[in-house]
């Protein structure tokens, strides 16, 4: 019988602690698939961040370091420099990367650190119970924006992919969604491409994954998926913002190792 589905080798066959309908599970699987397909597992070192994915090392079956809040790109830099042939990736949420860790992510991109960043944007702080994130949409209610995010108070949401794509050192920057089979298939291709860029020594790669938080959004998983498509994708357009093939992507030496 032809096998059409299997748990990737880079993912442990264990249940996760994520809430029902959360897309972390999908994104974990896409990352593990990419690592498996490219044969990178025995060289992979992941960096877990602070947020719901703090325990992602319990699910990925490869070496891992747990980083302080926002510092995953700095920790990844240390690993990258110390182990030149490792495949180093961070897995960060929007509070971690887009708020407390903005300096680290910007400068990792500036140096074109040869790492892959998986950036999970669900427009809210999940683990701490649903507070406003830099990516929270205007009008979106959270526990710290009870009347909805007001630009006069909190500004407009940060578009990380577009921002990082302006940095010459960013080799590959894409935004994907995880809300439909078609989106998930495209997301898988983008994540794989990001790891390919790293494996080829071409520098910094980041995939922003639009994601859900049914628990803190107060929605059913299905409604949450629809909410992403209706509200997030219009503000956070999908696509590749930088690729190695783009003419404006300057030639980048392997700065690392």
């Amino acid at each position: 019988m032809k096998q059409v589905y299997a748990v990737p080798k880079s993912l442990r066959p264990v249940p996760t602690h994520y809430c029902p309908g959360c897309t972390h599970g999908i994104i974990h699987k896409l990352v593990a698939d990419a690592i498996d397909e490219l044969g990178l597992r025995d060289r992979a070192v992941g960096v877990a961040s602070v947020g719901c994915s703090v325990f992602s090392y319990d699910y990925f079956d490869c070496d891992f370091q747990q980083a302080a809040h926002g510092r995953a790109p700095a920790v990844a830099t240390g690993i990258r420099r110390a182990v030149p042939d490792a495949i180093v990736f961070t897995y960060q949420g929007d509070g971690d990367l887009a708020s407390i860790g903005t300096a680290e992510i910007v400068h990792a991109a500036m140096r074109s650190e040869n790492i892959t960043v998986i950036f999970v944007n669900n427009a809210i702080y999940g683990m701490t119970g649903g507070q406003m994130a830099p990516t929270t949409l205007v009008g979106q209610k959270t526990t710290t924006s009870p009347r909805g995010r007001q630009p006069a108070l909190a500004g407009q949401p940060l578009r990380i992919a577009e921002m990082l794509a302006t940095i010459p050192g960013a080799t590959y920057v894409a935004r994907v969604s995880t809300t439909s089979p078609a989106h998930i298939a495209r997301a898988g291709r983008a994540i794989k491409k990001a790891f390919q860029v790293q494996a080829a020594g071409e520098g910094f790669s980041l995939v922003e994954c639009l994601s859900t938080c049914p628990t803190n959004w107060g929605m059913s998983p299905v409604d949450a998926m629809a909410w992403v498509e209706k509200n997030m994708i219009p503000y956070y357009p999908l696509g590749e913002f930088r690729t190695p093939e783009m003419p404006e992507t300057p030639e980048r030496g392997q700065a690392n190792g």
Binding site: V45, Q65, V75, T77, I79, H107
Partner: peptide, 13 residues
């Protein structure tokens, strides 16, 4: 802040 966390990464390796 970044420097000491780079130390963490390299030391962990």
């Amino acid at each position: 802040v970044a420097a000491i966390n780079m130390v963490y990464g390299a030391a962990g390796a």
